[in-house]
Design a protein around this nucleic acid. Structure first.
Length: 414
DNA sequence: TGACGTCAAGATCCG
DNA sequence: CGGATCTTGACGTCA
């Protein structure tokens, strides 16, 4: 069993860069692609550190690479970073995947769209082969178009599939869609073209087909995995958003129930959730609480809790002091805290705590800048100050702060 | 034609 | 000028 998350690593301050077609010079592409490979390597190191063995690589790693107006040789140019990444992936036994988005439509009625989809999917599998030794690292795809009737949509898909490279055919997996192709639809199609099926619980809830429980559908889908580990997608409905929208964080208790229901220990489970790796680590800890990870986890959340709810901060401290700590209690408190609104007094207090790390070492210019922020504390956004503080944490290499989720709390707003 | 989804880049506005 | 806020891009489908 492996638990994973998709594309963006919240807890790693390194972020992918992008660009516009208008500014896509050779040098600019080279710079951005190289940067993004550095981010990928950093994300993978982070995953290893936190025991995460399943990771979806973002399609945005090489923006515009398959665009018709872009001709960029990438395979030879990035051999070194590829090999470094591959070694990390190989040594850790991490399973990678990729997932072209909603605009890759292999069975479109428009031939140009199909041409592009073939290029896109082949690129994904080529890219994967550069960074993972796993011949079955999947490229996951939705059928996407049910235009006309499903029968003709299926035959269009089979035609498109035939045009893929052999490598792509081996990597391709189908996922049940939120509308259009349901679990039953993709299972029938997948059996015909001999590819595995990925079950997505929330899509299935939106677009049900079988009169079967999730566990039973997963059992049906397991037949499409021969000599490969079965993978599913798991997400929870966001309380206050459109039906089908992913929750901001995973409720660990709900996850544990589901995990028990579907015999999760036999599956690779990709979590689809806004807070990404944070929920992934939460679920890993709740399944298998290692004594050593509790302190690290509290260290990461510490200032985020401090700026939202000082009583909760003390309650968690007490869990440690009284020896009554467990991850269920810890995350229950944290999950309540992240839902709270902001309080400028508490935010300022947390800012001052974090500034304490730099008080002595900061340059005069940095001290002036900090003083200016504090002076105008009520007129500027707290994110501006956090951006500044994070840049200091990176510059002065304060590991404790660089790993703090404090800097990424904005994902829990709105 | 515009909504859908995504999120950083880029543009523009404000003090 | 820095910082906040709005718009654009890149894509295909479908009402």
């Amino acid at each position: 069993m492996a638990l994973g998350y998709a594309c963006i690593c919240i807890g790693d301050y390194n972020r992918l860069k992008s660009l516009r077609l208008a500014g896509a010079s050779e040098q600019k592409l080279e710079m951005i692609y190289r940067h993004n490979l550095g981010v990928l390597r950093s994300n993978i190191s982070y995953n290893i550190k936190h025991g995460i063995k399943l990771f979806r690589v973002s399609s945005d790693i090489f923006p515009l690479i398959t665009h018709s107006e872009i001709a960029f040789e990438w395979k030879n140019r990035f051999r070194e970073p590829f090999d470094e990444i591959k070694a990390l992936v190989s040594d850790s036994g991490m399973r990678l995947s990729m997932h072209p988005g909603q605009y890759t439509v292999l069975n479109s009625g428009n031939q140009e769209v199909v041409d592009k989809a073939v290029v896109e999917i082949d690129h994904h599998s080529e890219f994967l082969s550069c960074i993972t030794p796993d011949a079955y690292a999947p490229v996951v795809l939705h059928v996407n178009s049910a235009r006309g009737d499903k029968k003709t949509a299926v035959s269009r898909f089979k035609k498109g599939f035939e045009r893929l490279s052999d490598a792509s055919k081996k990597r391709l997996c189908l996922e049940n869609d939120e509308k259009g192709f349901s679990a039953r639809d993709i299972y029938d199609l997948a059996c015909e073209i001999d590819v595995p099926c990925i079950f997505d619980n929330l899509h299935n809830a939106m677009n049900p087909s079988y009169e079967l429980s999730d566990k039973e559908i997963i059992e049906v889908f397991s037949k499409t995995y021969v000599g490969k580990r079965q993978k599913i997608h798991y997400s929870q409905q966001a309380e206050d958003k459109r039906p089908g929208a992913h929750s901001v964080t995973i409720s660990h208790r709900e996850f544990l129930r589901y995990y028990g229901d579907v015999s999760g220990e036999d599956l690779d489970i990709m979590l689809e959730v806004k807070d990404k790796d944070l929920s992934c680590i939460k679920c890993i800890n709740c399944l298998d609480a290692k004594n050593s990870s509790r302190y690290r986890e509290w260290a990461r959340y510490k200032y985020l809790v401090m700026e939202k709810d000082i009583e909760a901060y003390h309650r968690i401290g007490k869990l440690f002091n009284t020896g009554s700590f467990d991850f269920d209690k810890f995350y229950t408190i944290v999950d309540a805290v992240i839902k709270k609104g902001s309080d400028r007094g508490l935010e300022t207090n947390a800012v001052m705590h974090v500034w304490g790390y730099f008080k002595k070492t900061a340059s005069d210019e940095e001290k002036r800048r900090y003083a200016k922020y504090i002076e105008k504390i009520n007129d500027i956004s707290i994110e501006t100050i956090k951006t500044f503080l994070l840049s200091l944490a990176v510059k002065y290499d304060i590991g404790y702060l660089k790993e703090s989720i404090y800097f990424f709390g904005e994902i829990y707003k709105k």
